[in-house]
């Protein structure tokens, strides 16, 4: 498995950043071809609409005063629109608190990834030291370690041994360094000529100074990519924070909303309206970030997957 992800096989995420995936040239078409083309585009559009429909339906449902699950309910009815569902989920969940917890969880993971991951990525790319190969192999192996193997022992360690249940630290620890981001950093620093750093070494700069004054200032594109790929992990994560948080005050939004769905919703007046309003709030940050930086997202994932 590890051999399928080879360092040299990987598109450099930054250099590839500006380049769209190479498109195959359209061939010269016979007259009948244009009908095939129409059919092809129709299928692709229909597929895209099927994929997007649940997002549209989430927003429509979140805005309905009376839940309307009929076919007509899929079209917004101006007389049946409200923002009350957002107010309902806000009181039911303590939305600001849940968002704050999600934010701290996510920020902690991003911070850990930027500090520890950047150091490791830079060392893997630019420094020759004993054990470099081991670190690199370990980084690739963890990409495929199934979480179910780690879940119970991590629970024992973090909740039982270290007493970190219901803490942000306990949520953050297992995700503290995103392996894909380390990979992004390594790929970024690989494509910077060694001379850039050697010049600073000749000037007598320490490695830490080189990192702070030379490496980090030029790595802004890699930092942004790393933040983007890291963000969706903790923001969307459900299982781990669900396992270790019992206090509602400590639950990130994904966990709070899931608990609302499984426990409270049955007693609410318009449960689906409130659920969908909560789902919309949970979905928006990741969707907006993705749409705003789509190219970076795509290129980072293209870059870190096999060719």
């Amino acid at each position: 498995m590890a051999e399928t992800i080879q360092a040299d096989d990987v598109v450099d995420p930054v250099a590839a950043d500006e380049a769209e995936p190479r498109a195959h040239q359209p061939e010269l078409r016979a007259p009948g071809e244009s009908w095939k083309r129409v059919g092809f585009l129709t299928c692709l559009t229909a597929g895209a609409l099927v994929f997007l429909f649940p997002f549209y339906y989430m927003i429509v449902g979140a805005l309905q005063t009376e839940p309307n699950p009929d076919v007509s309910g899929a079209f917004p009815d101006p007389s049946n629109l409200t923002l009350d569902n957002f107010a309902d989920i806000n009181t039911a969940l303590n939305l600001p608190r849940a968002l704050l917890n999600s934010g701290i969880f996510t920020a902690g993971v991003i911070l850990g990834t930027l500090v520890i991951g950047l150091l490791a990525g830079y060392a893997l790319a630019q420094l020759e030291f004993r054990g470099r190969g081991v670190v690199f192999s370990a980084m690739l192996i963890v990409l495929i370690v199934p979480f179910q193997l780690l879940m119970i022992p991590l629970y024992v360690m973090i909740v039982r041994w270290y007493g970190l249940a219901d803490t942000h630290l306990g949520m953050i620890l297992p995700f503290a360094v995103n392996a894909t981001a380390v990979f992004v950093f390594r790929q970024f620093f690989m494509q910077i000529p060694k001379d850039v750093f050697d010049a600073a070494r000749i000037d007598g700069a320490s490695e830490l100074q080189i990192l702070m004054r030379v490496a980090i200032p030029i790595s802004k594109p890699a930092l942004l990519t790393a933040v983007l790929v890291t963000f969706i992990g903790p923001w969307n994560e459900f299982l781990w924070p669900f396992l270790i948080t019992k206090e509602t005050d400590m639950q990130p939004l994904a966990v709070a909303l899931a608990n609302y769905i499984s426990n409270v919703a049955a007693r609410a007046a318009n449960p689906f309206g409130a659920i969908l309003a909560g789902a919309t709030v949970l979905a928006i940050p990741a969707v907006v970030l993705f749409l705003a930086f789509q190219r970076k997202f795509v290129q980072a994932h293209l870059g870190s997957s096999v060719k």
């Binding site: 649940p54 997002f55 969307n236 459900f238 909303l257 769905i261 909560g278 789902a279 979905a283 969707v287």
Partner: peptide, 11 residues
């Protein structure tokens, strides 16, 4: 890129 919990709400 969207949270499973949000999408499950719609499903």
């Amino acid at each position: 890129v969207t949270a499973s919990v949000a999408l499950i709400g719609v499903w």
